[in-house]
Design a protein around this nucleic acid. Structure first.
Lengths: 399, 399
DNA sequence: ACCAATTAGTATGTTTTCCATACAAATTGA
DNA sequence: TCAATTTGTATGGAAAACATACTAATTGGT
């Protein structure tokens, strides 16, 4: 019944996703096809349930000041045309989401999970149940294209066995476990959680722009990151790029680390921040308390934040030179302190950067706790629209 | 006469380039087309002068142990099908090269150039003459597809005006100058020289593999770099990624820098190395003399090299975590000392890296002084084979 | 109010591209 | 020597894209 999409159909969907919505004529220009061919293309996509004319009555305001000529009818992706699943195995919980063909979050479910101490098999079983729950939230007969699982860890040098120190897992063949649980014809991918968050923060964020250069930094106890170059995730050899917590920026750190002193995360991670505050103030606090102290002008908190800003600025300068992102996006619970130190961090950053070098903007994350699972799902969406034969899209109805 | 190539023709050339040579049947599998279609495709490419059957009589040894069935006839790219020009504006010289459609270096010419003190206009005039010289070395009637110029600098935040501090150029609109010299219908690109070297070192280096993750480090007085992710140059916002000399890895450095102390290049650049040697030994030396002293076992040189290895290992560890390259390639004149300190650097690198993290190999550059111009030309070659409509390939003969 | 200019969408016939099928050619292995 | 396998090519047909022409809907000038 449902046939694979032809190359130009996939290209058309990618163009529609990039732009948000296009008239047939604009789509034709984008794809380098004629209007007549594009009309037939759109007809096919519409019949297959993958695209539709925009009913949105705000369509008059496309860009149309003095634009002469007959106005076009905007065509957009029909979100119900397909679904992509993402999951996240966290330390305290497991989450699952579904993203639709239009890139919108359509369903989510999560459950508490005692990560350290639990087996990978237990996590896979929970994911399986959550996926069933998610699928019941989707429209009748919706068939997801695959599942991408974000994990707080990395594959080892063999590319197969997974290490997730924070969960106490070593040398686990997660791909195989998931493959057994979901069947062989269901594509399964794995992704590092920080990478997934980077995708969630940037994917489809700016309509019309799909070549963003960004660095997403996740600050908890550890500091991780994900690199987006020209709109694509910079994964490195085994998906382990962006491990910026190990950046060597000094000689010691605010928390003692005999083995690898001076790393970024021993200056700006959560433990490091609170250790510094303890050192200066003598008070033991959590992040929330520290932020409250900072907001109330507590001098020890202000001094701690200033030190944090110095080292964070150093780290950002190093990363800005190496990667030249346009935006640096801060995620993770420690980003709560950033509004209080934004000016200082940016001053330190500017100070360390070479003159004339483009300065990245520093922003707070837009996406919440669903970030890792959402980003994982977005990566599948991206693969499907890229025309990768492994994630070939299909129409819904017979044709 | 000569028409633009159709999408599958470009895809076929890209597949042939990636693999080196393929039979029609193998090409059909690679492209997802039938053998009959591919046969016609190859016929078209052959008639257009872009591909040919391999005459190489060593073709029996394709991979053919117990391979049953009629052996295929290998088809390869005909290098004479097209040419791509690259140039390099260095501090002491200007170089120009031509790369053919098969990715092979086919012609080169260079001339001394007193960079600091010369105007951009003078450089452009020299490039124009060298390009004429190069073109006379190419086959009759060969029409190059464009020119990519590698420059020791970066565009400013506006993306247009070029800064090349080392040449004393600031705010130069190089693209416009070159456009005026070569005409509007001749594509002109600009690229940072370290980026170009990174491409030269990796592009087409491993037949059958086009998704390499590598970091190329150029060490002279300054330290620059180019990042290759999944076979593509990681350019960052304005092509300025890879400026790793500004990496902040310590508090001081071996050369004094009031403004931005502790940068990688103040520990491992040429000046830094020789300053350290002067500090330890009291002797003022050049790189050659230092290497000679090191080779002869001079204790001061050995101690200097050890310090160099420590800081270089720190820098590599930071970069390895951030980028996770598979290979780190060392270029620039200072790489002459690497063979003497390889073991130490790799030990320090391993020491700083998290356990279980894949360790990149560290290698010396294969390409010589022609690197920047060659890489620039390779980038055009890559653009043409990627199907970018701006660098659309054309056949040679009428069809 | 009306008309030229412009742009969007569709219909129709033709060309181009690709496929399905069939078949001859060249090899391996029994 | 023959079955099995793979390659390359020929041929008719299906499908995708184009060229062209026409209608529809808008802007802007008179």
């Amino acid at each position: 019944m449902s046939t694979d999409l032809r190359p130009n159909e996939t290209r058309a969907l990618a163009a529609l996703f990039r732009a948000g919505a296009l008239s047939r004529a604009a789509l034709a220009r984008d794809l380098g096809l004629t209007r007549s061919t594009t009309g037939a293309l759109v007809l096919g996509l519409t019949e297959a349930g993958l695209a539709r004319e925009r009913s949105d009555e705000a369509d008059d305001e496309q860009d149309g000041e003095g634009r002469v000529g007959r106005p076009g009818i905007l065509v957009e992706i029909d979100g119900n045309g397909g679904f992509f699943l993402g999951a996240y195995i966290g330390v305290n919980w497991i989450a699952t989401v579904a993203v639709d063909l239009a890139g919108a979050l359509r369903a989510s479910a999560s459950r508490a999970f005692a990560g350290p101490g639990s087996t990978p098999e237990a996590a896979v079983a929970i994911i399986r149940e959550l996926v069933a729950e998610i699928r019941s939230q989707l429209p009748e007969g919706a068939r997801p294209y695959g599942l991408n699982v974000a994990v707080p860890g990395f594959p080892a040098a063999d590319g197969i066995s997974y290490h997730a120190t924070i969960l106490g897992w070593h040398g686990v063949n997660l791909a195989e476990l998931l493959g057994n649980a979901f069947g062989d014809d269901f594509p399964i991918l794995l992704e590092n959680d920080a990478n997934a968050v980077a995708v969630a923060e940037t994917y489809g964020a700016q309509p019309g722009k799909d070549d963003e250069d960004a660095l997403v930094i996740l600050i908890e106890n550890g500091v991780g990151g994900g690199i987006i170059n020209a709109g694509r995730l910079h994964r490195g050899r085994l998906g382990g790029a962006g491990e910026i917590g190990h950046l060597r920026i000094g000689d010691e750190g605010f928390v003692f680390d005999a083995k690898r002193p001076g790393r970024l995360e021993s200056y700006v991670g959560k433990d490091a921040l609170l250790a510094r505050y303890l050192h200066i103030s003598g008070r033991r606090a959590g992040v929330d308390e520290f932020v409250a102290a900072l907001a109330s002008g507590d001098p020890a908190a202000v001094a701690t934040a200033r030190d944090w800003a110095l080292w964070f600025g150093r780290g950002l300068a190093t990363l800005a030179c190496t990667l030249q992102p346009e935006r640096i996006i801060l995620s993770g619970s420690v980003n709560a302190i950033y509004p209080f130190v934004a000016e200082q961090v940016e001053a330190f950053l500017l100070d360390f950067l070479a003159e004339g070098y483009p300065v990245p903007t520093v922003e707070l994350a837009r996406v919440g706790a669903e970030g890792p699972a959402l980003g994982a799902a977005c990566l599948l969406h991206q693969a499907a629209l890229s025309g990768d034969p492994q994630f070939q899209l299909r129409g819904l109805a017979a044709r």
